[in-house]
Nucleic acid binder design. Structure first.
Length: 352
DNA sequence: TAGGCGTGGTC
DNA sequence: TGACCAAGCCT
């Protein structure tokens, strides 16, 4: 099976079926000379790490609206960027996004490096993202290997070695198909194929442009591929969130440490989230425990979060966090688990 | 290097 | 409805 046939079949398919995305330059426009905005491409690729296109669209629109250039973003306040990212998850991406923007301005004159090596040296840009930006923004023939491409290659070659051990061989397959004439379109084509045709559960082999090249389709093994090493079960952890409201309506919030879970994000003071929580309220007050805890699942554990509320007098001095005036508090600036706790507590704290 | 790190959609 | 999954990176 010639590699040229897979590459050209994917490019021909992409010419017709490319999905519209705010940061994407469609193939016809590229032929007319339109170039992608490297800033918009970088922003999209960071947001798309482990995140669906549907979830990213609105955030990408919001970010490019508030911060139209990398220089604008580099000059932003940390807290404003974290608040804008709230709800998208994997908050280390937002911290690295700012570090990266500031490095591009400080070290590269405000222009993104145009090579894989230059890009991967930047914060938050790893092997996949460097290849994606190099190919999509600059038409460098770098090979993207994400979850989509892994699945497509595992099926094209009927590769049964489980991930992540199979990564190197899947990369070698992917490299053989990388286009040198249209690198950016090819990278997006193979990922679009994985997202829309060569899907994990119910691949649409009947309309797949590379079906004639697919060894798994011939063997009937496509639903088993790619194989993955089994994941560990998630433990359940417990904790308590303290939601206090002052007489003037202000809310007691704290910015979490940069490292660790929800790092750098605004939230309610909480206990640590362990098997045996050690309650330590952020101040003396009459705390009421809500009947229903907030439930939330993170990547590696389930959390059952007891919620305690208190109304406190104006002169109360907290030993953690700070009171945020009612006018400055927007629940959307909180990570989702904190929004859940807020929604449970809102009814009892609505009246000051 | 294997584990930490979010969230919402899907079945 | 709970488990799995989605355009990974960092340490």
């Amino acid at each position: 099976m010639g590699k040229t046939s897979v590459t050209s079949a994917l490019l021909d398919w992409y010419d017709v079926h490319a999905r519209e995305m705010p940061w994407r330059v469609m193939p016809a426009d590229k032929r007319a000379g339109v170039r992608p905005d490297p800033y918009a491409v970088w922003l999209s690729e960071v947001m798309l790490q482990q995140t669906t296109v549907a979830a990213v669209r609105d955030y990408h629109r919001k970010f490019t609206g508030i911060w139209p250039t990398v220089a604008d973003l580099a000059a932003a306040e940390d807290a404003d960027v974290m608040a804008a990212w709230a709800g998208l998850g994997y908050y280390a991406r937002a911290r690295n996004l700012l570090k990266c923007a500031r490095a591009v301005v400080a070290d590269h004159g405000g222009a993104f490096p145009q090579t894989y090596e230059g890009l991967i040296a930047l914060p938050g840009i790893g092997p996949y993202t460097a290849a994606a930006i190099a190919s999509i923004a600059f038409d460098v023939p770098a090979t993207v290997l994400d979850g989509n491409v892994e699945r497509v290659m595992a099926r094209l070659y009927d590769e049964h070695t489980p991930l992540p051990a199979a990564k190197p061989v899947l990369m070698s397959y992917a490299e053989q198909h990388t286009s040198h004439s249209r690198p950016g379109d090819y990278a997006q084509a193979v990922m679009d194929l994985g997202a829309t045709i060569c899907t994990p559960k119910s691949p649409a082999c009947g309309i797949c442009p590379v079906r004639p090249n697919c060894d798994a389709q011939t063997a009937g093994t496509q639903l088993e591929l790619p194989r993955k090493t089994p994941k560990k079960p998630k433990p359940t952890r417990y904790g308590t969130a303290y939601i206090a409201r002052r007489a003037d309506g202000a809310w007691l919030l704290e910015t979490r440490p940069d490292k660790g879970l929800l790092g750098g994000m605004l939230g309610w003071p909480t206990t640590d989230w362990s098997d045996t929580p050690d309650p330590a309220p952020p101040m003396d007050a009459t705390w009421d425990t809500l009947n229903e805890p907030a439930r939330h699942t993170f990547t590696h554990f389930h959390l059952i979060l007891s919620v305690q509320t208190a109304k406190v007098p104006q002169n109360t001095a907290p030993n953690r966090g700070a009171f945020i005036p009612e006018a400055d508090f927007t629940p959307s600036a909180l990570p989702t688990v904190m929004q859940k706790a807020y929604n449970l507590a809102a009814a009892t704290l609505r009246q000051v």
